[in-house]
């Protein structure tokens, strides 16, 4: 198992290296001059040249790439041209907000997705099945920014049940920072009010973000369970007198979820993409809003760092998923040489 985990990690490294090179090349070869964008419309040609020299943009592209790679290796992402603060520091502050949001969304999507998928499969072609099918196609077709606005309209503006935006009530203030996850920090300092408030702020963005993932997971679980139900061992267990529920919950589900687990990993990338729009609407101070700001202000250092951080998070999650898969189904770890 240890060798399997190590192998997965080693396989992820070249992809991350590729990501650094690719994002750099993409940002630098597309039409448009970063120095000119940075200098603004009113800048004189001398000012543009000055900026070009200051950021090393006048060097050959290959040299710039090497400098960039060396900096990334040492965790130095440069300074944001927008705020003039180190990019690594800014991202460090914002990453927990996004992770808290995406993990909650992922947990919600997995729990409800697997539950609904299982329920649908056990009621094959029945009313529950049709309902789940409808929900899962609709979940993949809805634009998350639109859903977010409708949820805001209904639950925050009309019914006044949940907060409209932000991570925590301004008057209450954020909990003392230990992990950066407000839920965890509030619990650590034993402040029930802050925990509840942070949770209330989390509900609408997390639900918005979770819906497409929930739909995908429900679909994969449903077809996985249906396929497993036709296996011989299920027939045998039934003949041996296992109860329907016990059989489904323990034996069938375990065999059926391997495909679902892979999907959870792949979904994480979609979740981070989704977080960009969701964070923008709910004023969530995470990586998504940071990325949008970096893009709109041509803060290319910040942009490169965001891309890399997201890539690393994605790679880590997928390694974890592979490990989880190995635990659920030992054959996976075995057959991979």
């Amino acid at each position: 198992m240890a060798a399997y985990v190590l192998r997965r990690i080693l396989l992820a490294l070249p992809a991350l290296f590729g990501l650094v090179v690719l994002s750099f090349v993409l940002v630098r070869i597309v039409p448009g001059d970063p120095a000119a964008t940075l200098a603004g419309d009113a800048a004189t040609p001398q000012q543009v040249e000055e900026i070009r020299a200051r950021y090393g943009l006048d060097r050959p592209l290959a040299e710039q790439l090497l400098v960039h790679l060396r900096q990334v290796m040492t965790g130095d992402f440069g300074r944001s041209v927008f705020s003039d603060r180190p990019v690594a520091e800014e991202i460090g502050q914002r990453l927990p907000a996004t992770l808290e949001l995406t993990f909650c969304a992922l947990a919600m999507a997995t729990v409800f997705g697997v539950g609904l998928g299982l329920a649908a499969a056990l009621d094959h072609n029945g009313p529950v099945d049709h309902l789940v099918r409808l929900l899962s196609v609709a979940g993949l077709a809805v634009a998350s920014f639109w859903l977010a606005i409708l949820l805001q309209l209904l639950f925050a503006m009309d019914l006044d049940l949940l907060p409209l935006r932000g991570r925590i009530d301004v008057e209450l203030g954020p909990p003392a920072e230990r992990t950066g996850f407000f839920l965890v920090d509030a619990l650590l300092e034993g402040r029930r009010d802050r925990f509840v408030d942070a949770l209330r702020h989390l509900v609408l963005p997390a639900v918005t973000l979770a819906l497409p993932g929930l739909a995908t997971i429900a679909r994969f679980t449903r077809s996985g369970v249906l396929e497993t139900l036709q296996k011989d061992f299920v027939l045998y267990a039934r003949a041996a007198g296992y109860g329907r529920f016990r059989l489904a919950a323990i034996y069938v589900l375990r065999n059926a979820v391997t495909a679902t687990v892979t999907q959870v990993g792949l979904l994480f990338g979609a979740l981070i993409s989704g977080a960009v729009a969701v964070e923008a609407i709910f004023d969530w101070p995470g990586i998504g809003t940071y990325a949008v700001r970096a893009i709109l202000s041509a803060d290319y250092k910040a942009l490169l760092a965001v891309t890399l951080v997201v890539g690393v998070v994605y790679a880590v999650v997928n390694v974890l998923v592979d490990v989880a898969q190995g635990l659920i189904d030992p054959r996976v770890a075995d057959t991979s040489e």
Binding site: S23, L26, P31, V276, V292, I295, T307
Partner: peptide, 19 residues
């Protein structure tokens, strides 16, 4: 694979803004 690992929306946002 590397292209698949970049969140599409961020990549699309960045490209369209730069161009």
């Amino acid at each position: 694979d590397v292209f698949l690992a970049v969140p599409q929306l961020i990549l699309a946002l960045a490209l369209s803004q730069l161009m």
